[in-house]
Write a protein that binds this DNA or RNA. Structure first.
Length: 257
DNA sequence: CGGGTTTGACCGGCGC
DNA sequence: GCGCCGGTCAAACCCG
């Protein structure tokens, strides 16, 4: 019995969609695992600090920012972890064969060094902003260890000038998608329409980044990949945030003294 | 020739 | 004090 080609196409379409959903589910599961582990680590660190009588600033603890999705005009919860003051991280999907460390973010950068770090075989490049004399902003760019599709750029400092749109235009190009959270930047920069509409900063604080075990790096790399793909879909982010919130509330409380 | 990149050397912080 | 490691410097080099 012959199956009409239109039906066949439809079936193939549904199968492709199913496959896509499976991938997204896998990504979500991974994300939940990572965030759950991260929450556990942070909780332990927090309680250790509390118990050691050291004055504590709650840096690096998870909070949820309420933001409005520009497309659906619904508020979405965005899990966000703060880096050190004036510091932020950006994840950019690039061709893994591209070794140029170029993150087109609207600024002009001058490279002043490159280094191979201990836990990542890919070299880390160091840049200074060269758009304005005396601009104190620096950035570090390094390819994610386990997912070569992503570059991780760490920004430090505040720009003392405006962004140049002609430099940043490729940020919105189809071949380069950025998942950004830029803290410490002037509003004029943040309001730039060239900037990615979705903010999803899943980074640990600078304090936690001082941990240098492989386990941590593995989690971080997985996080980078998952965060970048999920951040493209605000409704998915909403569902994720709800699931994470459930995960956190169900997590057993750390021992108290 | 000026501006950017490369790369080895150097420096300072940190843990042991 | 020593060694490790990340970050920076600066001379050499490249390119338009």
């Amino acid at each position: 019995m012959d199956v009409p080609s239109s039906v066949k196409d439809k079936v193939e379409g549904v199968e492709a969609e199913l496959e896509q959903l499976k991938k997204e589910n896998a990504a979500l599961r991974l994300m939940l695992q990572v965030m759950s582990n991260k929450y556990k680590m942070l909780s332990e660190a927090y309680f250790r600090e509390s118990n050691s009588q050291v004055p504590t600033i709650c840096r690096g603890l998870t909070r949820f920012d309420l933001c409005e999705d520009q497309h659906s005009h619904k508020n979405i919860l965005i899990p966000q972890l703060q880096l050190a003051a004036n510091s932020s991280q950006v994840f950019v999907e690039t061709d893994p064969r591209d070794e140029s460390h170029i993150v087109k973010d609207g600024f002009q950068w001058r490279k002043y060094g490159q280094k191979v770090t201990k836990h990542n075989p890919f070299p880390r490049a160091y840049f200074r902003c060269s758009m304005a004399p005396g601009c104190p902003v620096k950035k570090k760019v390094q390819r994610c260890m386990e997912d070569k599709n992503f570059l991780m750029a760490t920004y430090e400092g505040r720009h003392n000038h405006e962004v140049n749109p002609s430099i940043g235009q490729s940020l919105s190009s189809p071949t380069s998608s950025a998942t950004t959270s830029i803290s410490g930047f002037p509003h004029s920069v943040l309001d730039n329409p060239l900037r990615s509409a979705i903010t999803l900063d899943l980074n640990l604080s600078s304090e936690n980044s001082s941990g240098n075990d492989d386990d941590y790096n593995n989690k971080r790399s997985m996080e980078d990949h998952v965060a970048a793909s999920l951040a493209k879909d605000p409704s998915f982010t909403l569902a994720l945030a709800a699931a994470v919130a459930r995960s956190i509330t169900e997590h057993p409380k750390p021992p108290t003294n």
